[in-house]
Design a protein around this nucleic acid. Structure first.
Lengths: 199, 199
DNA sequence: CGAGCGCTTGATTGAGTTCAAAAATCGTGG
DNA sequence: CCACGATTTTTGAACTCAATCAAGCGCTCG
């Protein structure tokens, strides 16, 4: 588990072995099984987490008990409510594992200590946040119907791996449509796209 | 213009006069009139901007020519496509002024030089980005209908000043509904709320 | 093998959109 | 300060798309 993480660190941040070890020593590795809840909306988050393998999601449950997925975090993505952690405020959403996953937990002190260990840390954070922000902006535009039906296709492109691993109803929840509607969209697309049916 | 900006810097970041001057010297102040376009979607953004007074908005125009507002930046907020600037990629949205405004433009070098001038700069950036991110997350949930009709009320609370200054159709565009629908919602609420009608 | 879960499909319904037109508001110049 | 045109908001009616309800199918796993 640590080894794949190291490989990732080398590739992404071009650091040496010692630094990688220092970083890992600041994190708590954990293996969690599908369905494990790491954060419940309203609780104060005490860490954010980096996903080494598998997939987590953040979501909100409304008063009718319906689940709305805010984001997925597959391999090599961060997920968590950092504001909740920093300010000790109740978090806005819940987080759980949609697959058996390996994660590294980063508590508040991780973010305080990291700049000393890896001095580009803040810049890297900012870039990753900008990317995440753009994803959110894109989602808002999709939800506002800017691009029409293409949101499903875009999801398939953005997360080709997830699209095959996750159940349809989760994708529907992420896209903000009902599972029936997604099923109909898929049906329509299957008629259009020669690659989607193999008979 | 510079003076109100300084007052803001003092209040928010508790820095001294010299540092404030240094910061201002890294920015380009500009007065822009209502309707001025600072960035057009598809162009590469060469700066992001801090709004000292007035209000800007970011928005996307779809193929039918319809405008979808992504965010407003009133007084003391940042707005821009930083990823577009950093990576010299086409920006996803346009930016214009919805009122006569005073802004400070920050080009790429601003972000490179700031850490030397004000060493908490990155932390401050990260906090502001986290707040902006939370706003976006909230919007996604609203668009997914998690909180029902309350999205309009929430907007009134979050931006009480904007709510009275901006035309309704812009608020509708931000909320992702048609102006007619917003008008009807307002009508319904006016019957409920004794403060909304003064006769 | 049967129970449960997820996916699909059909029929119905309703919230929100569009179209159209009237009413209200704003801004500008006489 | 009023009048006029332009813009914005409201209201009504028809319509549309996606949600919901409901039923059936297929797969997997105990």
């Amino acid at each position: 588990m640590n080894k794949t993480f190291k490989t990732y660190l080398f590739a992404k941040y071009s650091i040496n072995d010692d630094v990688a070890d220092s970083i890992i020593s600041l994190l708590s590795p954990r293996k969690i099984s599908k369905g494990t809840v790491l954060l419940r909306q309203g609780e104060i988050s005490s860490y954010v987490c980096f996903v080494a393998s598998g997939c987590l999601r953040s979501y909100v449950t409304d008063k009718k008990g319906k689940t709305h997925i805010l984001s997925f975090a597959p391999k090599e993505k961060w997920i968590g409510d950092q504001l909740s952690m920093i300010r000790a405020e109740p978090s806005m959403f819940s987080i759980d594992a949609v697959e058996d996953s390996e994660v590294f937990l980063a508590c508040h002190s991780f973010f305080e200590k990291m700049p000393a260990v890896y001095n580009n840390f803040h810049q890297v954070c900012i870039i990753e946040m900008l990317e995440h922000l753009r994803l959110m902006q894109k989602r808002i535009l999709y939800l506002q119907g800017v691009f029409g039906d293409e949101r499903y296709l875009d999801f398939m492109q953005s997360y080709p791996d997830l699209a095959v691993r996750l159940p349809q109803y989760m994708i529907a929840s992420y896209l903000g449509i009902s599972r029936q509607s997604l099923s109909r969209i898929r049906g329509k697309l299957a008629g259009t796209n020669i690659y989607s049916k193999e008979n």
